[in-house]
């Protein structure tokens, strides 16, 4: 191997050149690009795999990155189908949304915490800083660690909407990104309170992680109550398109909403839509 610097330089320029040249040439196989919500992404990947196995020659590429990105990419045409873990806002109504599953949000505490239920008012008081110690809600004498979600997350928006509080009124001790980070934070801190997706929490609780799910407004936080519609804090998981879907996108969305994928939806700890 005698790679002189000259050759190296030439090779590197060549590489740059080829990249520029061949970047435009695309393969002719049928490809479906999905981007968006990290909550929906694992589900979409699994649905995509089954869709591929039923439609040889089709490739379903799922990219993650957040609901807003799903919406932006669908608008710009970068993605054939967007994914969003919330309903569309008024400013986004131009897009078409197709719900493929439901997810709920529940309040979680550490398992060692003796508090077993909190009223909606108490939750609001804790999150707005009116109650700062567990002894005021029947718990031990310990300061409450309030875990909040980062700005812009669909979970945060739903939480704020349900409890009718403004994010500017919340004084968190920890701000987290994804669900699992929330669960790990609460599991590592007996004085913490947080809110995460029910499916994730239920999975972790049954697999020995020291957390517990609190009922919201008296309704136990279970996937069952979520699917029969009695649990109040829930959100749809949506697939989005720019216009009325046609061709492959239409087939995929129909497939993702059909009974054929209900087992996948349950496997990912979401609730299939009754159909």
């Amino acid at each position: 191997m005698k790679l002189t610097p000259i050759k190296m330089a030439i090779v590197s320029l060549l590489i740059m050149g080829t990249i520029g040249a061949c970047s435009k040439s695309d393969s002719s196989e049928k490809k479906l690009v999905l981007t968006g919500s990290s909550t929906v992404a694992p589900l979409a990947v699994e649905i995509g795999k089954r869709f591929e196995s039923l439609h040889p020659g089709v490739r379903v590429n799922v990219q993650t990155g957040g609901s807003s990105r799903g919406i932006a990419d669908t608008r710009s045409g970068l993605a054939d189908i967007g994914m969003a873990s919330r309903s569309l806002k008024d400013s986004e109504k131009g897009l078409q949304a197709f719900a493929i599953a439901r997810d709920g949000i529940c309040i979680i505490l550490h398992k060692a915490n003796i508090v077993s239920t909190l009223s909606d008012e108490q939750v609001v008081a804790i999150y707005t800083g009116a109650i700062k110690n567990w002894k005021h809600v029947g718990g031990p004498d310990a300061p409450i660690t309030v875990v909040n979600k980062a700005e812009g997350r669909a979970t945060l928006e739903l939480f704020l909407h349900y409890f009718a509080i403004k994010n500017t009124d919340i004084h968190p001790d920890v701000v987290i990104g994804d669900n699992e980070q929330g669960i790990k934070t609460v599991a590592g801190n007996p004085d913490a309170i947080g809110y995460v997706s029910i499916g994730t929490a239920e999975y972790d609780e049954t697999h020995g992680i020291p957390i517990k799910l609190l009922p919201v407004n008296g309704v136990a936080a279970t996937l069952e109550n979520l699917s029969n519609g009695s649990f109040p804090l829930s959100r749809p998981l949506n697939l989005l398109t720019k216009t009325t879907p046609t061709g492959l996108a239409k087939e995929f969305i129909e497939f993702a909403r059909s009974k054929q994928v209900h087992d996948i939806v349950k496997e990912q700890y979401f609730v299939p839509l009754a159909k």
């Binding site: 990155g65 957040g66 807003s68 700005e151 812009g152 669909a154 001790d173 920890v174 701000v175 990104g177």
Partner: peptide, 28 residues
Amino acid sequence: GNVVQTPSRIFDPIRTLTANIALEMAYA
């Protein structure tokens, strides 16, 4: 901890500029 505040003690949670981008970019 990612709380947006100027820390007064070493035990206070903070958010850095990078964490700010990573936390919110996908949702902004």
